[in-house]
Design a protein around this nucleic acid. Structure first.
Lengths: 254, 254
DNA sequence: AAGTGGTCTAGACCACGTC
DNA sequence: ACGTGGTCTAGACCACTTT
């Protein structure tokens, strides 16, 4: 698609149409399309602002504004003198971007994800609704534990549409020694853009108590997360329990 | 202060200095100064971009970029055709900006804040550290309950430096029928810019159980919040317990 | 030296709101 | 009709990185 016809004389018409969006947003969505199509992969450079401006027949400033917004959304990363890159979960700074747990004292140590189990199932009502798939559609369920300094702090049950994660198995999980999202990105080409968490307080049941090595009935955080990729498409649902004896959930409100 | 001398020939020198910041950031900090000094009050219009450009001897585009950032930070609010306004907690859309509680089902109803108690005290170690005041400095402590549809859901204990909240009393709190932050802004000229919450799971003690009408030992969210005004100055510390039987804490991760 | 993003400027035109 | 913010353009120069 080319944006040129919308310029100058035609812009007026476009502006009055109900679906009008400014040029830089059209450019933004064209860049999104290129990302979704895999034209530029996570970690790679995208073309320079000048090149994109020529490709889309707009000024460099308009491309710049589009990229500005995408950089603010953690979709692209600018590096002065080098270029603009597709954000990647393999980047150490992005690796645990969605993890809000902070140790009560001491430095922030990187957690270690220990896969426990991985099996196939059919989507129940809730999984189908949250993942926007058919009731009964094939899904993959993963159980894993997050450990900080060898200590289990988080127990997760993760629901994935099998269509997008073909080939995922306990062996694959065990052979990966980095974050889950970096595995998802590298192996399945899925980049997580944003997530939404619902947090409640619950009492530890027998299983959770054993897993996190706390007493039965200990209050835990229940954290439900739905994670979205490009186009606000949900691709992961996880239910976790967090022990908050040595850690807390930190949230910045802006 | 005038920025003109930094332009053109002198810019180079400034750029090489260790404290260099781009022009639009200098403008941003000048606008911050005007806000802190009370030159423009919450809810009011600030001068137009053209006027500010003339005042600071920069181009309109540079002022625009400064305002862009402040609008993204919820410090200013743009309204096309009308002007740029100082964000206010009296604005219905900002009133419960920091409250992340959402009902399990049904529409989002506005909570009602019921003050319970208000007394003077001296800052303990933790309050002094978090509020960045002297140990033993005078503070005000407020207890209140947040109710949704007449049902108590949150119990808060709020610690305020008395120096900034002179005259606050239970009567003042009871005579105010809007959000606490809108009271703080209107009565004490304090606008909250950002906050940080630490969340843990705890068991309800006797007092909390009675207050929130749940069983003794029910798991609750413990939410500690420090709230900051201009210049990252902490002005409020609150410790709350949230019942998550009919509500949950919703967090958007970006 | 050449290429990239980062800043700053100046001017044109559009959309929205008020008078 | 006028003033406000919103968009788009074009061009200059700076800072960082690589060749």
């Amino acid at each position: 698609m080319d944006v040129a016809p919308f310029l100058c004389s035609n812009l007026h018409m476009v502006r009055e149409s109900p679906t009008f969006s400014p040029l830089y947003r059209q450019i933004k969505s064209l860049i999104f399309q290129a990302l979704e199509s895999g034209e530029w992969r996570p970690g790679q450079v995208i073309p320079s602002e000048q090149e994109l401006a020529a490709r889309f027949n707009v000024s460099q400033g308009t491309v710049r504004k589009a990229i500005d917004e995408m950089a603010a959304d953690n979709i692209l990363v600018r590096r002065q003198g080098k270029g603009t890159f597709v954000a990647s979960h393999n980047d150490p700074r992005q690796m645990f971007r969605f993890l809000r747990l902070v140790p009560e004292e001491g430095d922030l140590t990187h957690p270690y994800s220990e896969p426990v189990d991985c099996w196939r199932a059919k989507a129940g009502q809730e999984a189908a609704r949250l993942l926007a798939i058919e009731l009964g559609a094939p899904i993959i369920i993963v159980r894993r534990v997050l450990k900080f300094d060898q200590k289990p702090v988080v127990g997760d049950e993760i629901y994935l549409p099998e269509e997008l994660f073909r080939g995922l198995s306990l062996e694959v999980l065990q052979s990966w020694n980095s974050s889950l999202y970096s595995l998802f990105e590298t192996r399945f080409g899925l980049r997580m853009i944003r997530a939404q968490e619902r947090i409640r307080a619950v009492a530890a049941d027998r299983a959770a108590a054993e897993l996190l090595r706390v007493d039965d009935g200990t209050p835990l955080l229940s954290v439900e997360r739905v994670t979205y990729t490009y186009g606000d498409k949900p691709v992961e649902w996880r239910r976790g329990v967090y022990s908050t004896v040595g850690h807390y959930y930190l949230n910045e409100l802006t």
